[in-house]
Design a protein around this nucleic acid. Structure first.
Lengths: 140, 140
DNA sequence: CGAAATTGTAACAGCATCGATTACAATAGA
DNA sequence: TCTATTGTAATCGATGCTGTTACAATTTCG
């Protein structure tokens, strides 16, 4: 969903868009959008002005925003393998496996981020435009 | 948690372990373990016998089980970017972005799987043993 | 200056998910 | 036959996310 919102922002390049408008686009509630925008603001991906006639716009050009940044901004808490809150007393494996798994999953998440980094927001918008044209062509 | 269970099974190589014993190891309930084992059985990673004196054991040697298989067995439903159930009427971006994102996330998930494939269950057990020795050494 | 628009934020309900618990039938071995 | 153990269902509680309403703060416009 975050990508969707940012794609709309990229689409209306530069023009500030209100949370209400974005909410209509994503078919949800303005508050949801505003909560999402808070995360994106902290990640310096969007800038938001308050008041009448205000709204949000991208902080950078969409060529310079990659999906890894968006993912990190939204999924900020890396709750991947961690939810193991059990200290686990008597098991000989339990004590030591934790760090090992942390390493492995950190590596895996890094691989995922590396792959996401290859795609920019501009890429997504361009690809979306093309699939849209395809669809129209097939409709004819 | 699935990795934890399988690691215990690898630890007691060959011996059938009951769900109750596994539950003690992971510090949870036998039923949780049994539900997890059902997924692992469908993935042909463990074999389970019923009845008295029964239990579960690995179907293959831990060298031939990699973490990507375990991940796939447990997180079977690839609910990564999909939860976009909104058809979204009036937005020019909404129609077309779906397929694009599906491609991107499929690629990212593949990258993650490729990385997980590099680690076998045997690797995890060995690394866990080593970190355990480290901890003991530091304690002295 | 005053009104309108818009964000930030809180409070709350609804829903899905997950872990946990209890209970019980079915099965396999002693 | 008796006992241990799995498979399975029903249920409860905690948690998290979405959606909704409400309201103060802020900014622009007339």
């Amino acid at each position: 969903m975050a990508v969707h919102v940012l794609a709309v922002l990229a689409y209306k390049e530069g023009d500030p868009v209100t949370s209400g408008c974005l909410a209509d686009s994503v078919n949800t509630n303005p508050v949801i959008i505003r909560r999402l925008l808070l995360s994106l603001q902290q990640a310096r991906l969007v800038e938001t002005r308050k008041g009448a006639g205000a709204g949000s716009r991208l902080s950078r050009s969409p060529q310079r925003i990659n999906l890894a940044e968006i993912y990190r901004a939204v999924e900020g808490h890396e709750s991947f393998a961690s939810p193991q809150k059990k200290p686990n007393a008597g098991c000989p494996v339990g004590h030591c496996i934790r760090k090992t798994l942390d390493k492995v999953f950190a590596s895996a998440e890094s691989a995922l981020a590396q792959d996401l980094k290859r795609t920019t927001l501009a890429d997504v918008v361009r690809a979306a435009r093309e699939t849209c044209l395809e669809a129209k062509k097939q409709a004819v």
